[in-house]
């Protein structure tokens, strides 16, 4: 066991500010959608717009960070041990088995996380943010000579935006729950707050891992 500085300062700032922005956007967004009333439509729409610009700015920084640090490689999808990981969550976790994959600084994400987070980054966020930008800039042609997205109906833009929001909320629930599946229920969240996490020694292979488990039994 060794204590490793796994989540860098910017990474944690990005993660938590993105998390709070997405939750705030959901809160105000579903009010704009008409689901409930908290701030009132006018304020909700205004807050939603401001928060959306902040999120767009944050995403631009995050993309820059991913590219310059090479951290984007963390998300290269792999099918190796993907099945093991799924089976672990379906059954192994109840039998007290260890994670089938090992977390290291160079490979923070297990195969399932890689796939889900990649989908989050290249499908879910682009759908939601893209449709959001279209929604925000939606204009029609008139005497003001405003720029047009006229022939794409607002109902479709709103559909994609709402779909993205719903999927994000489902992601949020599952994501928050999955953080409890670490070594202890709070170890993953602690790591994302402090940046440090206790990891297995790197030279430990999975076989060793399994042997250890057997020995302890």
């Amino acid at each position: 066991m060794r204590k490793v500085y796994i989540y860098k300062g910017f990474e944690r700032f990005w993660h938590w500010s993105q998390a709070s922005l997405i939750m705030f956007l959901a809160l105000t967004g579903f009010e704009v959608h008409g689901s409930y009333s908290i701030f009132g439509f006018e304020k909700a729409a205004e807050f939603h717009r401001t928060a959306s610009w902040l999120l767009i700015g944050l995403i631009i920084f995050a993309i820059f960070w991913h590219i310059t640090t090479g951290e984007w490689r963390q998300y290269i999808p792999t099918t190796k041990q993907l099945k093991d990981q799924v089976i672990f969550y379906i059954s192994g976790i109840f039998k007290g088995e260890h994670h089938p994959t090992q977390k290291t600084e160079l490979s923070k994400l297990n195969p399932l996380q890689r796939l889900v987070y990649l989908g989050f980054k290249i499908i879910l966020i682009p759908i939601t943010v893209g449709s959001g930008i279209f929604y925000m800039l939606y204009k029609t042609f008139d005497q003001n000579n405003l720029i047009v997205i006229e022939d794409y109906p607002l109902a479709s833009i709103a559909f994609w935006h709402t779909l993205g929001a719903i999927l994000l909320m489902i992601f949020l629930v599952v994501h928050v729950y999955m953080t409890t599946t670490g070594k202890t229920p709070t170890s993953n969240i602690n790591a994302m707050i402090t940046g440090y996490e206790e990891l297995e020694d790197e030279d430990n292979t999975i076989e060793n891992n399994n042997n250890q488990t057997n020995e302890t039994k």
Partner: peptide, 17 residues
Amino acid sequence: PGRDRNKILDGFGTVMF
């Protein structure tokens, strides 16, 4: 916005959530 919604999507979303 705020008045209209896609009822099928909203229903599907609520059930999924």
